[in-house]
């Protein structure tokens, strides 16, 4: 301790002081909420219908099981989204005149699928395409619901990737092409890795959004977490299952959000 310079000692003191103040004010807010909220006239009723421990205990295991569906839908959608988004981003980036239709297609694709609310697309594709008369299992709501999610999200991610591609300085392309690399190799080895790396934080935001939006598939049949909570709500006339579902979603999305923030902060510190 005696080895600390005066400046270090001062900084340490300041750090301790701010930590103390932060902790104290946090505790004060929590204490105020804890004592004041139960005094609200409707608190007993709210507690009974939203924070009912007995209901939660009874429904939580099934809710968790239903959440496995959300995880599964998420897990198989994500790689598909990434692959399709990459393809679309590359379409939008082609320079060859012969491939101009691809560019147009890419632009249309992103305009349309970013412009339609996800829930509408889930409905239209989830009921519409199977309605053409596909045999089982090709008319499964899981399949076409996934298609809807993949179409929407790949449009967003494609735009993120495209702006990533455009953000790679043209001198990088020049360096690569001056070495005799083909355009495709330049894209694959030089531009894309940098573009993707740069856009990871932005993509994380979409990944988090997807984690929640998988629940939209419940509208076309699958009994995943949101629907299961909805069923319990109707059955028990109690909103606690919804709170349970929210907690389950948060358990996944909060760490993911923090991780995205961490990546973003890390990237900023590298750039500056």
């Amino acid at each position: 301790m005696s080895a600390l310079s005066p400046r270090k000692r001062y900084e340490q003191k300041e750090r301790r002081r701010s930590l103390l103040i932060a902790t104290a004010s946090l505790l004060a807010v929590c204490a105020a909420l804890y004592t004041l909220v139960p005094k609200a006239p409707g608190w007993v009723a709210v507690k009974r219908s939203f924070f009912n421990w007995a209901v939660l205990e009874k429904t939580f295991p099934t809710l968790l099981k239903a959440f496995l569906w959300d995880i599964a839908i998420f897990a198989w959608s994500l790689p598909l989204i990434m692959v399709l988004a990459l393809a679309i981003a590359l379409c939008r980036n082609v320079k060859t005149p012969a491939l101009f239709p691809l560019r147009v297609f890419g632009a249309f694709y992103t305009d349309i699928f970013r412009g339609v609310p996800t829930i509408l697309l889930v409905y239209l594709i989830g009921f519409g395409i199977p309605g053409l008369g596909l045999p089982r299992p090709w008319n499964s709501p899981y399949l076409w619901g996934t298609v809807a999610l993949v179409l929407t999200y790949s449009a967003y991610v494609a735009e993120v990737l495209r702006s990533g591609i455009e953000s790679v300085h043209k001198s990088q392309r020049a360096a690569s092409e001056s070495l005799g690399l083909t355009e495709a190799d330049t894209m694959r080895f030089v531009v894309l890795p940098q573009a993707i790396r740069r856009q990871v934080p932005a993509m994380m935001n979409f990944i988090i959004a997807l984690q929640k939006d998988v629940a939209l598939l419940s509208f076309i049949g699958p009994v995943e977490l949101l629907r299961q909570a909805n069923v319990y709500k109707s059955l028990m006339a109690n909103f606690t299952p919804y709170v349970g579902a929210a907690v389950i979603f948060l358990c996944v999305t909060i760490p993911a959000t923090r991780y995205a923030d961490y990546l973003l902060a890390k990237q900023h510190s590298v750039r500056t």
Binding site: S171, A174, S178, F189, Q194
Partner: peptide, 13 residues
């Protein structure tokens, strides 16, 4: 024909 640029243009990744 090799070329070397003012700003190096190494691939940072």
């Amino acid at each position: 024909i090799g070329i070397v640029f003012q700003s190096f243009n190494l691939f940072p990744h």
